[in-house]
Design a binder for these strands. Structure first.
Lengths: 266, 266
DNA sequence: CAAGTCTTTCCGTATTATGGAAAGCTCTTC
DNA sequence: GAAGAGCTTTCCATAATACGGAAAGACTTG
């Protein structure tokens, strides 16, 4: 908590909240660091291209090296390439948006989103995080996590109510996860966002653990839970295809995640 | 160069070369750091999710937080969303792949690639870097960089020969950049990769400086330079559309780049 | 032109990183 | 199954480096 690297990395995460850049003093206030410290940290980050400093406006913003490394993670984890076409097939079938997410820590992280044909669309921006306990993909990721991790998540996840029908009881949540494990798919019926229903399935690796999850989301007025459930076979087919191409991943313990790739340019 | 943060960040970049993860001792050898130092640095990086440590195999790899931040950069710089559809239109017209790149430091950084209809394809993986002096987009990015930066790049870029027809003379390169400025487009005729030709145009902001570049690339046996030149109007149209949606960016000085966005999830 | 706010630099203090060495693991080998 | 090789992790005295308040400089505002 007092280590320099942690401070620098937290500064990076904080910088993400300022898409148009931010001055040093505002940033240091937001971070709670002295200005001179912030200045020095940003200098080191900028020297490696992780932060960009516009010399004119004196504002700082995230640097392109982060984009570069993010793409490498994307490749290494199989997010790039084959995943999108498979998802597009699902959306072609359902006419609704198809989403993909992975487990990271105590959140799900949206990795891909394919739009549907309809006007009213659900937004699951890649790179954003979402809760595990009240989303269809989140429940799949918990239910099909390696046993140790699953038990810990079921026991410890904060069950903050987010939609009109969020599950908030520990026992009810444990029962729901069991149900998901049995049926092999999960439903979130206005549990996350009011007016939105979703159905999700896990993308399971050879050991049965979830590598990712896929879901179809739609406005509640257009789709009943029964309607959505009919998409499960299509989602399962896509999940099987994805399982073949995603790198098999080990159980993750405490925090982060991943892999990455990088060419050595001639 | 001896600062701790720099070491940590260089470790991150290095980790990118190991998509399947790497052990501490191998990494420390590659980085040239003592093992104990590497261990401590990785610990700090892992604590913030920038690095993932598989407790089973004891191997380290890049973490999902990098994907998250990379996506934020992508959004802030306008790479996400509208860019791809515009590029797809170009590919629909040309039948060949369309690429997009931005300037970062002394490299170009590929940010998007849309495949063409043909079997033989050119690969411009997003997140990879490429040279400025021997590619169509690179020349556009130099030619339409803010004056100060342009002059510096023209004077200082390493003109390493990479393809059979790379420009290697300083004067010839300066003349080529002038030509690109006059014509408003650039051609790379087997200057980067043998057997590959490309034509590129800048995406210029309101001040006339390049925000990015677009290109069409094709195998030399299929497309003559004259054939490629006929795609310039389509590329220009796309560039104008992109200019309207990309965030206007200031002159960049020394190194990095960017912007980013981040939601405060409840 | 003065007052406010910002970025940048300075520098003495003491907190923190450093890295060799030792301890602890996990394999393979004989 | 003991010995060995190679790995990860921990320890700790030393020395270097980060720290952050304050001052200086730059810029904008009234």
């Amino acid at each position: 908590m007092a280590d320099m690297i942690g401070k620098a990395l937290r500064l990076l995460s904080l910088l993400g909240s300022y898409p148009d850049g931010v001055g040093i003093s505002e940033l240091s206030r937001a971070a709670g660091y002295p200005v001179s410290t912030t200045h020095r940290l940003l200098g080191s980050l900028a020297a490696e291209g992780f932060v960009r400093n516009d010399p004119k406006s004196k504002r700082y913003a995230l640097g392109l090296r982060l984009f570069e490394l993010g793409q490498q993670v994307s490749h290494a984890r199989g997010f790039a390439g084959v995943a999108l076409p498979v998802m597009e097939q699902v959306s072609a079938h359902t006419g609704e948006p198809t989403l993909m997410a992975v487990l990271d820590g105590r959140d799900q992280l949206y990795v891909h989103a394919v739009e549907g044909r309809q006007q009213v669309q659900i937004r699951g921006e890649p790179g954003r995080r979402g809760p595990l306990h009240c989303t269809s993909m989140g429940k799949c990721l918990v239910a099909f996590a390696p046993e140790e991790q699953r038990l810990r998540l079921v026991a410890e996840l904060e069950l903050t109510p987010m939609g009109p029908r969020s599950i908030t009881g520990r026992a009810a949540f444990a029962a729901e996860i069991e149900l998901v494990r049995e049926r092999g798919y999960a439903v979130a019926d206005e549990e996350h966002v009011p007016g939105i229903r979703a159905v999700g399935v896990p993308v399971c690796g050879p050991d049965g653990a979830a590598l990712a999850a896929l879901s179809t989301a739609a406005p509640a007025y257009r789709m009943s839970v029964a309607d959505l459930t009919e998409f499960v076979p299509a989602l399962r087919t896509a999940a099987r295809e994805l399982a073949a191409v995603l790198p098999r991943r080990q159980a993750v313990s405490g925090r982060s995640s991943s892999r990455s790739s990088r060419p050595g340019g001639p």
